[in-house]
Design a protein around this nucleic acid. Structure first.
Lengths: 213, 213
DNA sequence: GACAGAAGTGAAACGTGTTCCTATTATGTC
DNA sequence: GACATAATAGGAACACGTTTCACTTCTGTC
């Protein structure tokens, strides 16, 4: 009944895909790539409309026009699905930033700018809520997808800190990760309604300027 | 069918309880207080044994020797239940630290010490996983319980930074919150198996010394 | 002690994530 | 083009959080 190869757990799609090319993964038949994109599109659409709870597996399958079993073949759980969607969005954002000059005279200014834009780019609160919750809830079975998100985020942050392609030191990585940590916590507080827009923005601003002082 | 007063959403037990006295809340009959403690004990026990997934509402009810409906009367959801349990643990920890001299010659040393001990004090990975996940997943309906956790954590951290009862400035609060943010993210990475014990400890150590530099 | 209302019990039922199974359709090989 | 194999469809079934409800037990008041 089950599949035969060792890649079963990560769907028939090669996990390394979107770290290299975002839209044209050389993996699977073209029908499979399209199906995968349709599923992710449906996920983002449902998440945007109603957040985490609205991303119901049956609804995703129906909107993507695949059977429920097929959905589970591509993404072994709702968490994998949402984290993969988050990964695709981050990937796109990171690629977009890489080829752009980030405004701001100091690393802190630029980092704050990128974080604000990325928050906004994630869409409304619903979408952010769905993706953030999935990320925080994911266990090690979604490690590959999680790491992709982390790598994209770190790239964005280090690029914002030092736009010239200077070597990234160990310390820089720690800084980037700490900022990412604070940002995630702030997002969680925001999407769960514990912190207002203003409070969140102010906290991030302070935190970044403190860390990058 | 529902209750009549405005306190319905937070169970028949007064929410302000454990911010003042941890074990002898002057709220509800003694039978109610005992039931509440039994429920929280059962929650901690199950979480310790098998983590978030093992804390099943039917299992908690059975072990605490209450009906499922009663459990839901005390805690309106699994998230409330776990966050309340986390709050009780943090409350106890914070009270314990308050009356103790924290070893370490610098604020960073003392903060690192407190965080390590608290992580360990949370028990094994299973318990930490259950409580951390609940905390990250909680929405604003559990705001009261969440704030209790945040206050206890902030108290612990500011006390570790400045053991002498000096005034806590706005900056100090930001520092404490940033450290708390990083700690939570690190815990999430740890309990989800994305980061080893050593990596987690090292990251926290670096982050704290960077923030408190 | 009788009574009213609150609290607790026990069990059924519902929703959604997840699994499983059989029939059908694509895909690639000869 | 026929066949072997994998992929998909379609749908039933299961697990656990949550709700609901009729009934019983407790608690405080007269």
């Amino acid at each position: 009944m089950g599949a035969s190869t060792s890649l079963d757990e990560s769907a028939p799609i090669d996990p390394r895909s979107s770290l290299e090319g975002t839209t044209t993964d050389p993996v699977g038949s073209s029908a499979q790539r399209e199906r995968r994109q349709r599923i992710l599109d449906a996920t983002i659409a449902l998440a945007t409309e109603g957040g985490f709870d609205a991303v119901q597996m049956r609804a995703v399958a129906e909107r993507a026009d695949v059977a429920l079993g097929t959905l589970y073949r591509y993404f072994p759980s709702k968490i994998h699905l949402l984290v993969s969607a988050l990964g695709r969005e981050f990937d796109r954002a990171q690629v977009a930033w890489a080829s752009r000059t980030i405004p701001g005279g100091t690393p802190a200014d630029r980092v704050v700018h990128v974080l604000r834009r990325t928050s906004r780019g994630l869409g409304d609160r619903h979408l952010t809520e769905a993706l953030t919750r999935a990320f925080m809830f994911a266990d090690s079975s979604a490690q590959v997808e999680i790491e992709k998100v982390g790598i994209a985020l770190t790239k964005m942050l280090t690029h914002a800190m030092y736009p010239d392609q200077r070597d990234v030191t160990d310390d820089d990585m720690t800084v980037a990760r700490v900022i990412g940590d604070v940002w995630l916590s702030a997002l969680v507080a925001w999407v769960t309604g514990r912190s207002s827009d203003e409070e969140t923005a102010r906290h991030m601003d302070r935190a970044v300027r403190m860390i990058l002082r």
